[in-house]
Computed example of a mutant assay.
Amino acid sequence: MKNNVSKRLVVLVALLVTAVFLAACGGGGGEAIKIGGIHDLTGPTSDVGTPYADGIRDYVKFVNENGGVDGRQIEFMSADYAYAVDQAEQLYSQYIGQGVVAFQGWGTGDTEALRTKIAADEIPFMSASYSAALASPDEAPYNFLVGTTYSDQAIIALQYAKENGATNVAIFHHDSPFGQSPVEDAKAWAEANGMSVIAIPMPGGATDFTAQLTQAQDAGTQYIIIQNVSSPASTLAKDVKRLGLDMQIVCLNWCSDELFVSLAGDAAEGVIAASPFAFPGSGADLIENEIRPWAEANGINLEEKGVHYVQGWTTMRAMVDGIRKVVADGNEVTGPNIRAALETFSNYSTGGVTTPLTFTATDHAGSKALQLYQVQGGEFVKISDYISAGN
């Protein structure tokens, strides 16, 4: 009997020592890492918000299926907020109360409205808003931008227009903080470079932009830059073609997609896309070696999901890699530690989906460049290497 008791004690002690060792090394699993999120699945930007949300959520599935973060699963808590700022604030507070340590947002209006709370709660926050106001740690210490800022996107489009002889440009924009975000910076750049820019709001739900295009025509507009999502952008493109206007269209991020081409039809031909993110058919390493294999294994057609799915996947991947660094360094997974880890990213590779990202303690705009594509034969064809604002 004594021998049996002694053997059991030895086994129990060995198990205890092993558990302590694994805990000290950060291995062997542990509590789930909670991340919150809001999506526009039914609101005015749901046409692009849905595939973006799918990319985020599917990356979480991919991580969890492959061992999580050093054995710890990610618990992603998210809901549709239909692009309503008050609903975004309510869901954010709810998930903070449930212990999330990081957050995936969506729109410019809600991201800017939450900025003070995010800083006070010390919650690293990545969203689909690339408003330049969110890139400064002095103003938004816990916001991180994976995409090129809207201001830089617009300035790069203006550079292209100027190089091609244009002096008069109209920015057609969503009538919201998202749409207005790049306007003042674009106007300032244009004025400093001998160009003229007018801003024309696009009323929500409009089915005809003849009046707005007449305003642009009267101003001598040669180039149109669109800061809006795919559905209204496609209506605008069809109106430009119907009216026979000689105006080159440049779509910024949120209408640089497959849905725009599908909805605009023949009117999409020749439209230029200023895209910070690689398209599914680009051959980018991350797409071919991670996203596509997982998608195919799960019955998902990546071409149908499109560039915004890739965008969502890549954004969540960057956040999780920041968390991975916290765990690898043996630190507790907290908001301040995740922020500190992200601020060490120097030329962080997104596998060719974007330019390499760099975050510092003084600059949270990770990407400074984008590529230009043009719709040719119903497909986006790359027409430039990476271009930065000012280059």
Rank of each mutant, 00 (worst) to 15 (best):
I198M: 11
F279R: 07
E296K: 12
A88Y: 03
S127I: 05
D363W: 05
D185E: 11
A166E: 01
K241G: 00
C251K: 06
I56W: 07
A32I: 08
E163V: 07
A188K: 13
G283I: 08
N289M: 08
A365G: 04
Y81T: 14
E191W: 02
N331G: 12
G283S: 06
G71W: 06
G147I: 10
M77I: 15
V17N: 05
S262E: 15
V11K: 08
F76M: 12
A268T: 05
D175V: 10
D239S: 12
S231N: 09
G55D: 01
V381H: 03
E75W: 02
E332G: 07
A140E: 01
T221A: 07
W294D: 00
I198E: 05
V229E: 02
M319E: 06
S127D: 03
F178Q: 02
F76V: 10
D54Q: 14
R57S: 14
T354M: 11
A274P: 00
L12P: 01
R242P: 00
N347V: 09
G330S: 08
G220I: 11
P356V: 03
L158T: 05
I226G: 03
D266F: 04
T167R: 13
D257E: 06
V13M: 13
T344A: 02
P51W: 08
L41T: 03
I35K: 10
A24I: 14
G390W: 06
N66I: 07
K162E: 08
C255F: 10
D185S: 15
E184P: 04
Y348R: 03
E31W: 08
L15H: 05
G377R: 10
I287Q: 03
G220N: 10
A268Y: 00
A284L: 04
G352Y: 04
G36H: 06
A341S: 15
A278C: 13
G55P: 01
V60E: 03
E191P: 00
V169T: 11
L16M: 15
V48L: 13
S181Q: 03
I338Q: 01
Q212H: 07
N64E: 11
K117V: 10
